[in-house]
Simulated scan of single mutants.
Amino acid sequence: MEKQFKSRLITEQPAIAARFSAAYRNHRIGHAYLFDGEIGIGKHDAALYFAQLVLCENAVENVPCGTCSACKRVASQNHPNILTIEPDGQDIKKDQMSALLSVMTKKGYESGRRIYIIERAHRMNTAAANALLKFLEEPEGAVTAILLTDAYHMVLPTIQSRCQRISFLPPKREQMIETLKSQGISPSIAATVTSLTADANRATELSADEQFLQLRKTVVKLVQAVDHHVTDALLLIQSEWGPFLKEKEDTEMGLDLLMYIYRDIVAKKAGLSAIPAYPDLDEFITSLAMKMTYDQLSAVLEVILQAKKQLHRNMHRTLLMEQLVLSMQEGLFVV
């Protein structure tokens, strides 16, 4: 496992690997980092690699040895100096954060730096984020926080400002798409799933998931309905979105799919050569690119991002989608 941490990071994110080595060599390990990158890009593995480097008993040329007791326990996620938390249900709650910070500040650990990893840090509710913020403002001892997120814009600016941001390069979508196509997956679906995840296995799973494929169709229908008339769009929410509103993750994926259509429209309008998420909708996307202004597109993208934020504040999901449709329609009237 430790070799996988090292090889993937060095191969796919060499600049980040070099940054870790430089921090270790110069004895400048920070107290808080924010790893920002797409789902499946390897942020968690990178966090464990960094932890190995910091705790390694025999680092060679600023790289963890991978064979000492500390490296092996980090790889097996069994090192007492490392704790990880992730959303409990939909959110990271205050009691989770308080318990984590309480444990990390107690004595009795092995020597060396203590590291806590916060998965999907943008899912912290307000109380949890404030509890973490207080700790980041007054760090105690040799403790490092590593926050992982695929939605940097949803992390509180006050937390962003207290962390060193490390942005992960997106994967080479062309290669992923070709791999999926070789498995018999259509080019259009391959393009869509590789917009959603950088994890090849997850992309394959989504491509074969009937509910996901139906969600994609429903999202396309919604964009077509919004373009036609707001009433059509509202009726569609009532008639076809029900199955995708039961779980927050499904609703969020629907919002992501919606956002990628409008990003395709922006790219088409600007004449960019980026790989579209919906290559099969080229004619429709071209027509909207000709019809919509940049201000209108910006307004629509902004209300989708706001809907994602409201989703994680536990707003009623049907109401959320209805309000989104109305806001999108308002955005179309921006001059």
Rank of each mutant, 00 (worst) to 15 (best):
K3H: 10
R8P: 03
S21D: 03
Y24I: 09
N26P: 04
H27N: 14
Y33E: 02
D36Q: 13
K43P: 07
F50A: 05
N58H: 13
G66A: 10
T67Q: 11
S69H: 13
C71T: 09
C71L: 05
A75V: 12
H79F: 04
P80E: 06
D88H: 09
G89Y: 06
I92H: 02
K93T: 10
Q96R: 01
A99I: 05
T105Y: 12
I117K: 04
I118K: 03
R123N: 10
T126K: 14
A128M: 07
L136C: 02
T144V: 02
T144P: 01
T144K: 03
D150P: 05
C163P: 00
Q164C: 05
L169D: 09
M176C: 05
L180K: 04
S186P: 03
T197G: 06
L215T: 00
K217E: 10
K221I: 02
Q238C: 02
E240D: 14
E240P: 03
D250M: 09
D256K: 14
K269H: 09
S273Q: 14
S273P: 05
A277F: 11
D282K: 13
M292V: 09
S298H: 14
L305R: 15
A307S: 15
K308C: 00
K309Q: 13
R317H: 06
Q323Y: 10
M328K: 11
L332C: 11
